[in-house]
Nucleic acid binder design. Structure first.
Lengths: 136, 136
DNA sequence: CAGTATCCGAGCCGATACTG
DNA sequence: CAGTATCGGCTCGGATACTG
């Protein structure tokens, strides 16, 4: 989901939007992951640094332990999510958004708003297109 | 890239963000595609209904004929892109954004802005995380 | 010119089982 | 409780070749 390092680090930094490693492309690769945006949303709605692993899994209906773990690791490595361990047995781990992660909520909210307002139009266009091509 | 029809159409319409078929999830599946957001951007920058296939391919550095075709077909079926054919031999096909497609530029611009402003921080966080875990 | 058809490798993601 | 390890399916997307 999250490549460790771009092959040519300078390219992404140059700001060339047509470079395959442009910032936008790389961001979309992250938030395009099946559980990433949902994790950010859930963490953004909770009090900072307060949600534990199991609680997170409960709030993200359908996510497996493995995928939640993978998703959180990627977000931590990217500096979007913080992780605090308490005790050793049984372990308690608290997750929360960093300031950077919280700032990601702005574009994500824009995406959500557009989806809620316009996905129905896409469905209609799709059904129209399908009925036209279907009867051949 | 674009499933023909959701398995349970009502679920997506209900607005339940935790449903796997929620609008946001489905939108992210689309714009997460490797070439989708770039196609929208290039078409948004051009005059409406004026860009031909080859020109589009030229402006989207690196895209193959196949993937450009697949991407445009999906966008057309979703009602985000319009397609106008002129003549038969040789064929001339003009593409452009619909109003719906143009409106998608708003959230996409937000994503781009965040990426340009903050991806460098992610890179730094990643390098830090990598150097810490690496030497073990 | 503007596509379509086919093959194929890479990686996402799910299911399941195991551990400190 | 909070993970890791492993296997396997499926889809995305690239390379190449062909067509009206």
């Amino acid at each position: 989901m999250t490549p460790r390092t771009p092959r040519t680090p300078e390219a992404g930094a140059r700001g060339d939007l047509f470079d395959p490693l442009c910032p936008t492309r790389r961001l979309l690769d992250r938030i395009g992951g099946k559980w990433t945006s949902m994790a950010v949303k859930v963490l953004a709605e909770a009090s900072p640094d307060e949600v534990r692993f199991a609680e997170l899994q409960r709030r993200m209906a359908g996510v497996s332990q493995k995928m939640l773990s993978v998703t959180l690791q990627a977000l931590c490595r990217d500096g979007l999510v913080s992780r605090r361990v308490e005790g050793t047995v049984p372990p308690r781990v608290y997750y929360g958004l960093t300031d950077l992660g919280l700032s990601l909520e702005v574009p994500l909210a824009a995406v959500r708003r557009w989806a809620e307002e316009h996905m129905a139009e896409i469905d209609r266009a799709q059904q129209l297109a399908d009925t036209v091509t279907e009867d051949m």
